[in-house]
Amino acid sequence: MNPKIRIVNEEILSDNWYELKKITYMSEARDGTWTKQTRESYDRGNGATILLYNQEKQTVILTRQFRIPTYVNGNETGLLIETCAGLLDKESAEESIRREAEEETGYKVDKIQKIGEAYMSPGSVTEMLHFFVAEYTPMMKISDGGGLEEEHENIEVLEYSFQKALEMIKTGEIKDGKTIMLLQYAQINRLFDPVPRQQHILVAGPYRSGTGDDPALIHRNIEWMTETALQVYEAGHMPVLGEWYALPLIRKAGSLNIGDDIFNQIFHPSSIRLLQHCDAVLRIGGPSQGADEMVRVAQGMGKTIYRKLQDIPRIV
């Protein structure tokens, strides 16, 4: 506990719904003096909330229900658009939000992800809110939702496009804090971006350029490009070097020297053929006419061009 805070007295002002206390405490100032202060603290337990989203449809599930505190504070209808939420009822946050999602929205979600916790009104309310997101599909809908009759809940289930929900923040149609936080989390973390797919990526860089055809320097270039290809592989994609494909063919065809007729007949043309079966080119390293040619041809084919390894999306 904080040694600079001493609870002097707690007085229950109301326990009609939840517990409202009047708390008197002493706090130590920076100069070492102690002062007495009194505050009210409303303890309604902790809660959880979840944003249900569909990446394929680009939609979210929200709810609308009457909230009396907003009605007495300027909300003309008293209706508030929110993410599904509820108090923890002697359950873990995850168990609670799964139950609330099913009761309120009718969706029995599968995998859920916790993204954080926050005090929502720390000046007067003790509640800590646990935030979750989960993907939903039409197959997960097992009821109409709407809440529990025995708890007199009258909840309307809404499905909006994600972009419309963001616009509703700007227009003031969505004013609920937890809902704004979850929608902005989805926007910042790009939950609605297309899921990256595995790509076949041609790694193009200097092979002979700048080496004077020195075998040791050429080998160094190949090793460096192969090391880069390994990082592309570790990012979840399928890398390939034109050299991996061309050099064995060149040797088998009888080439005796780098740059002889057989070498030239196979080296770049084979890479062009290979490129037709690739999704993208990663152009790395310094000057190289061959690598630049791969980029030009790839652009003409409408392939993606990456200039840095970090630009390639990770899928594993």
Rank of each mutant, 00 (worst) to 15 (best):
N221Y: 12
I284K: 08
D110Y: 12
D89H: 08
F162T: 00
M139G: 11
Y160P: 03
K21G: 11
V297C: 07
T77D: 13
Q55I: 06
A291E: 01
K90T: 12
Y207P: 02
Q265G: 01
I23N: 09
G254S: 03
I180D: 03
L62K: 00
N73M: 13
R220D: 07
M140D: 12
G300L: 00
Y107Q: 01
I312R: 00
V232L: 07
E149F: 04
E151D: 08
W34F: 10
L62Y: 03
Q187W: 06
D176N: 15
W224Q: 14
N264I: 02
D15H: 09
R283C: 07
F162A: 01
R314S: 12
M225F: 08
I169T: 03
N46D: 14
N73Y: 05
T35G: 13
P287Q: 15
I5A: 08
D15K: 04
A118V: 15
G212P: 12
G285M: 08
A118T: 13
Q289N: 10
K252T: 06
S92Y: 03
R273K: 15
E117V: 14
L230A: 10
P287D: 09
G146Y: 02
M120S: 11
M225S: 13
K175V: 13
G205S: 02
V8P: 05
F192R: 00
Q276P: 00
I174D: 01
D311E: 11
Y306G: 05
P3C: 06
Q231G: 02
S41G: 07
V60T: 03
K141G: 02
Y53F: 15
E234K: 13
T49H: 02
F66S: 10
T24P: 04
K22G: 06
Q310L: 12
R283W: 01
T35M: 07
I266G: 00
E104Q: 11
E234S: 02
K164L: 15
F267M: 14
K4L: 09
P194I: 10
R197Q: 11
R99N: 05
G74Y: 13
H268W: 07
L13A: 05
I258M: 14
I266V: 03
G259L: 10
A298T: 08
R283H: 05
D213M: 15
P196S: 04
V157F: 00
R307I: 05
L166A: 01
L309T: 09
E149L: 05
R197Y: 01
Q163P: 00
P287F: 14
P239F: 01
L249R: 15
A204Y: 06
S270Q: 12
A186E: 00
E156T: 12
N46V: 06
M225Q: 13
T211H: 13
E104F: 05
G290F: 05
K4M: 04
Y185N: 06
Y119A: 14
E234N: 01
I68N: 10
V125H: 15
E82M: 10
M1V: 08
V295A: 07
Q37C: 04
L13S: 03
P239H: 01
G123E: 11
G290N: 11
Y107E: 00
D260M: 10
D110A: 13
I266W: 05
I97F: 04
Y160R: 05
M139Q: 13
Y25I: 10
A253P: 09
D89P: 04
V281L: 03
R197W: 01
T304Q: 12
I188F: 01
L202W: 03
K170A: 06
F192S: 02
R98C: 08
